[in-house]
Design a protein around this nucleic acid. Structure first.
Ligand SMILES: [Mn+2]
Ligand SMILES: [Mn+2]
Ligand SMILES: [Zn+2]
Ligand SMILES: [Zn+2]
Lengths: 137, 137
DNA sequence: ACCCTTGTTGCAAACGATTTGCATTTGCAT
DNA sequence: ATGCAAATGCAAATCGTTTGCAACAAGGGT
């Protein structure tokens, strides 16, 4: 049983209106276990409220990203994909055969990146680490 | 004094025709020290041969990428950028204030990625590591 | 409960990057 | 030099995403 962030309170607190489409989208990304793209979110949203538009999905995702409620990923090839910003930081391994996205986290790796940036005189704001591979057999 | 790959021989060997536009583009990416996008390559190409089209730049970059002669990067925000596949593997740190692209390489980091993929039962085909940061001061 | 203001929506058109169909040109093997 | 497939330039098409605008609705004040 997962503990989800209360996005509705966060939105309200950010001073934006809690509209019907937003509630629907919020619910969808709140309970998504995968990394859906805008079209996938749109399709799921339409099932709940047929009047929602794709433009609103895009606008909402941008808003949520700016509020830090979701993360946007741009994996090779496809369109941008999203995931809620719950849980701790992780990176992704993409299975080139199946397209499956596997999450992983390595504190050593994170520290090493910090160290490299530090040696170059930089502070990391964020990073992107994606491994593309195939199942060993 | 750098030693550059002989792209023309490689193309010929790959069975593709060595056309005028291709020679021009090959020369451009062969001597580029930066990470130009298609439009930048196009602008440089037009100076050498005014009849070259942007479509041909795109087609040629795709061809060169498939031949393994260039690498395509999709940094945050902008269009795809290219660099010749000479020299050894490296990753990139993007200065968020200036847009400057800094190259770095860490064998430890590379090994660690291999190890992580291995633990997940995968062989890495390629990866993407980009650090986005600002100069420490 | 009813206004009123202003943010938000749906729609369609615009967008930026990249790809593609097609008629014409060109490389290059013969 | 000739012939033919491959490559080109151009314009139109595509894809993912953004935006202008008129209609709509959230939610604070009455
Ligand atoms: Mn994830
Ligand atoms: Mn580079
Ligand atoms: Zn990470
Ligand atoms: Zn690397």
């Amino acid at each position: 049983m997962e503990q989800h962030r209360d996005y509705e309170s966060e939105l309200r607190q950010a001073g934006v209106r809690l509209t019907k489409p937003r509630k629907v989208i919020l619910k969808i990304i709140g309970e998504s276990e995968d990394h859906p793209d805008a079209m996938a979110i749109f399709r799921r949203a339409v099932k709940i409220d047929a009047s929602i538009s794709l433009a609103t999905v895009y606008r909402t995702m941008k808003l949520l990203e700016e509020l830090g409620a979701v993360h946007r990923h741009s994996f090779e090839g496809g369109p941008a994909r999203f995931e809620n910003a719950d849980g701790e930081h992780h990176d992704h391994l993409i299975d080139l055969d199946t397209g499956k996205v596997i999450e992983f986290h390595s504190e050593t790796l994170e520290k090493l990146q910090e160290q490299i940036a530090d040696e170059l005189g930089y502070d990391i704001e964020h990073h992107r680490l994606e491994l593309y591979g195939r199942k060993r057999r």
